[in-house]
Write a protein that binds this DNA or RNA. Structure first.
Lengths: 112, 112
DNA sequence: TGATATGTAACCCAACAGGTTGCGCATGTC
DNA sequence: GACATGCGCAACCTGTTGGGTTACATATCA
């Protein structure tokens, strides 16, 4: 697993660049095809909305892709956001590997 | 991509069976280690809560895993739920492959 | 009996998905 | 110029959900 260096591409960007533009479809028409409101799609395209599981299913139908493709894009984006937004999670103390990968338990034998 | 037949395992199940039980850690203590409330972890363990990106980062720290591992579990679970919850997305009409994979546009030349 | 662990309900707050309506702007067309 | 269309976006509304705290009943264990 390589750590994400730069801000991952937003799914909306892919929709726009790889589908809407090449196909010359407007946001309005695409929203209709997908069965969602123009606003919902517009927000995603403009990177202010996210791909929900339901939207991923719709996109997978329209573009002959997998729902996972879209959800992975969103996942990577969200993860990057979470990593960046706060450093609180870094305060979590890792469970010592020797305990994690043995039969030992966390609260048994304080030391040895 | 193989289609998901049965209900995917909930991330909370993994946390419990693969970590809490083997390590003999209580939900209370684990919640403390993760820096979240007992309720938050309890909800996840009991499959009433989901793994957020932030929680995935915390789990990855504690258990020496990747955040993606946890988010993928959640993603698969959510996707299955969305597929099952409603069939509305199936009404989305696929864009004809010949148009999708050519230089043609959707609204150009109604036929040929 | 007393301490601990746990599920869960009640409450509160913030965020977010999605929908509708409408406004202002840009562009294209008649 | 006048009108239609596409689009970003702001309001406004609703429902859901994550997360926190407090509290309670139950269960288990020393």
């Amino acid at each position: 697993m390589r750590k994400m260096i730069r801000r991952p591409t937003h799914p909306g960007n892919i929709i726009k660049e790889d589908y809407l533009v090449p196909l010359s479809v407007t946001i309005k028409d695409m929203a209709e095809l997908l069965g969602v409101s123009r606003k919902t799609l517009s927000k995603i395209i403009n990177e202010r909305g996210s791909i929900t599981p339901d939207m991923a299913l719709r996109l997978s139908r329209a573009f002959d892709t997998t729902p996972d493709f879209w959800l992975n894009l969103q996942k990577n984006y969200d993860l990057w956001q979470a990593e960046t937004a706060s450093k609180e999670w870094q305060k979590v103390k890792p469970i010592p590997p020797n305990i994690l990968h043995s039969n030992a338990t966390l609260n048994s034998e304080p030391s040895a």
